[in-house]
């Protein structure tokens, strides 16, 4: 395998890891605050649809992005209402959101655009287009570093760079700010937060809202950057892989990046079965590669590679008592 092929593989790793990373960080905010969110999948899907629809109608990808975030936030609000305000079961609420999104997106798409549950193809300003970083063309011919810069680092959509930037921001918010301290505390022991005079409900809604925004960006990226329009079930289990990555990363922002890159890499090579065959001299079923993130997560959960300890109050509605 030559350098160029490797770079192309890593390049597509980065593109495929981006929605995982955004969804994973979305889940991180929610779960660190004690709200398990299995509905990442549904939120991404809803965001993918609405962003593609609005981008198609208005011709502006930025309006599309906003619409995607709006759709995801709406579902977040439902999840928050069910699991925080009414203290319902977080898993059930999340599953309901996934079903709701899977059904509604197709139904609305069909009645709106009548294209078999899709949105129209997006082009031009209705999509996020690759950005060529300064000097990429000029440095292209520098040996080794040139291709790395041109092929791998340059030439992605703005969302890819944004997602990478959100990793250190998340780490900073979580561990260096007052908001982060309270957020982590509310996921570990809400009673401590409550007796310290801080609203548990408020903190949890804030976390769920951040989760909604990030999921919205992830969904919009799927439909307006990775693909050119919405198709049925286009999130394709990415929400679940993001959850798996979150566990794999032990709920830590920087580990999330590595986990998502790893899972993105697995998705990238699953698309290039010819490469596997050339390097390994035999073929690996792509289904096996698709299943690998889950298998790895089970391995992690079984405690083979260190211990993944979830936030202690995760999944538990907070009931004030003493």
């Amino acid at each position: 395998m030559d350098l160029l092929t490797l770079l192309q593989l890593l390049d597509s790793t980065l593109r495929l890891a981006t929605p995982l990373l955004l969804a994973c960080l979305a889940g991180l905010f929610s779960e660190r605050a004690g709200i398990f969110d299995i509905g990442l999948e549904g939120k991404m899907l809803a965001a993918a649809f609405l962003s593609a629809a609005i981008a198609a109608v208005t011709g502006s990808v930025w309006l599309g992005l906003l619409a995607g975030i709006f759709a995801s936030l709406l579902l977040s609000a439902i999840h928050g209402l069910a699991s925080i305000t009414f203290r319902g079961n977080q898993l059930i609420s999340g599953v309901a959101i996934n079903f709701l999104a899977a059904g509604l997106t197709v139904v609305i798409a069909q009645s709106w655009f009548a294209e078999g549950g899709r949105t129209p193809q997006l082009a031009g300003a209705a999509r996020f287009n690759p950005i060529t970083l300064p000097g990429a063309e000029a440095l292209r011919d520098v040996p080794v570093l040139g291709p790395i810069y041109y092929e791998l680092i340059s030439g992605h959509t703005i969302i890819v760079y944004l997602a990478l930037l959100i990793v250190p921001i998340t780490a900073w918010v979580l561990f260096s700010t007052r908001f982060g301290l309270r957020l982590r505390a509310v996921g570990e022991n809400p009673a401590a937060v409550d007796t310290a005079g801080i609203s548990v409900v408020g903190m949890r809604f804030a976390a769920v809202a951040i989760c909604g925004v990030l999921c919205g960006i992830a969904g919009a990226y799927l439909a307006t950057a990775l693909q050119a329009g919405f198709t049925k079930d286009m999130s394709a289990g990415r929400g679940y892989i993001a959850l798996a990555a979150l566990i794999f990363a032990k709920w830590r922002p920087v580990y999330c990046l590595w986990a998502c890159l790893l899972f993105g890499f697995l998705q990238a090579i699953a698309l290039r079965s010819d490469l596997i065959e050339r390097v390994l001299q035999f073929n690996i079923q792509s289904q096996l590669l698709d299943a690998l993130p889950y298998i790895l997560t089970v391995v992690i959960l079984a405690g083979f590679v260190g211990k993944a300890i979830p936030p202690r109050a995760g999944g538990e509605p907070y009931v004030k008592e003493r």
């Binding site: 260096s176 007052r178 310290a196």
Partner: peptide, 13 residues
């Protein structure tokens, strides 16, 4: 961290 929780002086810890 437990001592300052809820009684932080500012946005930064």
């Amino acid at each position: 961290e437990n001592i300052i929780l809820g009684a932080e002086d500012s946005g930064l810890l």
